[in-house]
C-alpha cells in the first residue's frame, strides 16, 4: 500500500463516486431526513412542555412498567441463555441441531403472530393460563407477568447467540488446570468460565433489554393495555398518535430514545472494563 501514502483518497479501485453517492442518497432519504424531522419537531416544544408531558403520572407509570418487565425478561433470558449456550456447546445429545435451529424462531416469526398465540395460551381458559389460574390463582395474560412472558419470547436468541461463539473458543486447558489444582466444578465455572463469557453476557443482555423496551407487536395483545397497570411506553405513544397528539408522542419518543442511548453507552463502557479485566491490563 506504499503508493497510497500521500493522498488517502486515491485508490486505484474504481467506483468510489457511484457507491458513495448511492450510499449517501439512500441513507439520507430513509434514515437521516426522517430522523431530522423528529429533531425539528421536538425543537418546537419548550423544555417546560416536554417535562410536563414526561412527568404525567400515566407516562411515568408506563416507563416503570416497560423498564421493569424488560429487566425481568432479560434476567430470565440471561440465566436461560447461559444454560442454553452451555448445553449447545459442551454436550452431545439427540436433537441438538434441532434446538440450535429453533432458537432463532423469535427472529423469524412475526411478532404479532407470536403475540396472539401467547395471549390465547395464557388467558384464564387457555392451555397454560388455566393451569396457573386453577393451581396458583395467577393470571398471566393481561397482567405484568404476561408482558414479561412475551418479552422473554422476544429476547431468547440474543443472549444465547452472544455467548455461544465465546464459549466455543474457551480453551479447555484452563478448566483442566483448575481441576487439577483441586477446584470443584462450581468454582471452575465461577472463576474460570464465567469471567470469560461475562462481556458477551453483558452485551447479549443489553441488546435483549434494548429490544424489549421498544417491543410492540407481541406485547400489544397480551398486555391488555390498561393505563397505569399494563400500558408499556410504545403502546402509550401509539395511543397519543391515535388522538393526534403529536407533541406528546414526540416527547415520550425522545425520552425513550434517551433511555436506549444510555443503555447502549452503558454497554460500551462495561464492555471495555470487562475486556480490560480479562486481558489483565488494569
Amino acid at each position: 500500500m506504499k503508493f497510497r501514502n500521500g493522498n488517502k483518497r486515491k485508490s486505484i479501485i474504481p467506483g468510489f463516486g457511484l457507491s458513495f453517492g448511492v450510499t449517501i442518497t439512500i441513507l439520507s432519504l430513509v434514515v437521516l431526513i426522517p430522523l431530522c424531522s423528529l429533531v425539528v419537531f421536538a425543537s418546537r416544544l419548550s423544555p417546560a412542555e416536554f417535562l410536563n408531558i414526561i412527568m404525567r403520572p400515566r407516562v411515568m407509570a408506563s416507563f416503570w412498567i416497560s423498564l421493569s418487565t424488560a429487566l425481568a425478561a432479560s434476567l430470565v433470558n440471561a440465566v436461560m441463555g447461559i444454560i442454553l449456550a452451555w448445553v449447545l456447546v459442551r454436550y452431545e445429545f439427540p436433537g441438538k441441531r434441532f434446538i440450535d435451529g429453533i432458537i432463532e424462531l423469535p427472529f423469524a416469526l412475526p411478532t404479532a403472530v407470536a403475540g396472539i398465540s401467547l395471549t390465547h395460551l395464557t388467558t384464564t381458559n387457555g392451555w397454560v393460563g388455566k393451569v396457573f389460574y386453577d393451581l396458583f390463582g395467577i393470571r398471566i395474560a393481561y397482567s405484568w407477568l404476561g408482558i414479561t412472558v412475551a418479552l422473554v419470547f422476544i429476547g431468547i436468541p440474543f443472549v444465547v447467540r452472544s455467548i455461544q461463539p465465546v464459549l466455543e473458543k474457551i480453551d479447555s486447558q484452563y478448566e483442566e488446570a483448575a481441576m487439577i489444582l483441586g477446584a470443584d466444578s462450581a468454582t471452575t465455572f465461577r472463576k474460570v468460565i464465567f469471567p470469560e463469557i461475562l462481556p458477551a453476557l453483558i452485551s447479549g443482555f443489553t441488546l435483549a433489554f434494548a429490544r424489549c423496551i421498544g417491543e410492540y407487536g407481541s406485547v400489544v395483545f397480551i398486555a391488555g393495555n390498561t393505563p397505569y397497570k399494563t400500558e408499556i411506553v410504545p403502546l402509550l405513544i401509539m395511543a397519543e398518535l391515535q388522538e393526534f397528539d403529536y407533541a406528546a408522542a414526540t416527547s415520550i419518543a425522545l425520552a425513550m430514545l434517551a433511555i436506549a442511548f444510555i443503555i447502549l453507552s452503558a454497554n460500551a463502557i462495561l464492555q471495555s472494563i470487562a475486556s480490560r479485566r480479562i486481558s489483565g491490563l488494569n
Partner: peptide
C-alpha cells in the same frame, strides 16, 4: 459516522420508526 447511521434503525423502537415518518 456512516456506519453508525446505518445501524441506527435497529436500535429505534418500531413505533418511533413509524412516528418519524408520520412527522416527515
Amino acid at each position: 459516522i456512516i456506519s453508525t447511521c446505518i445501524d441506527l434503525p435497529v436500535t429505534v423502537s418500531p413505533i418511533i420508526a413509524g412516528l418519524i415518518y408520520l412527522l416527515t
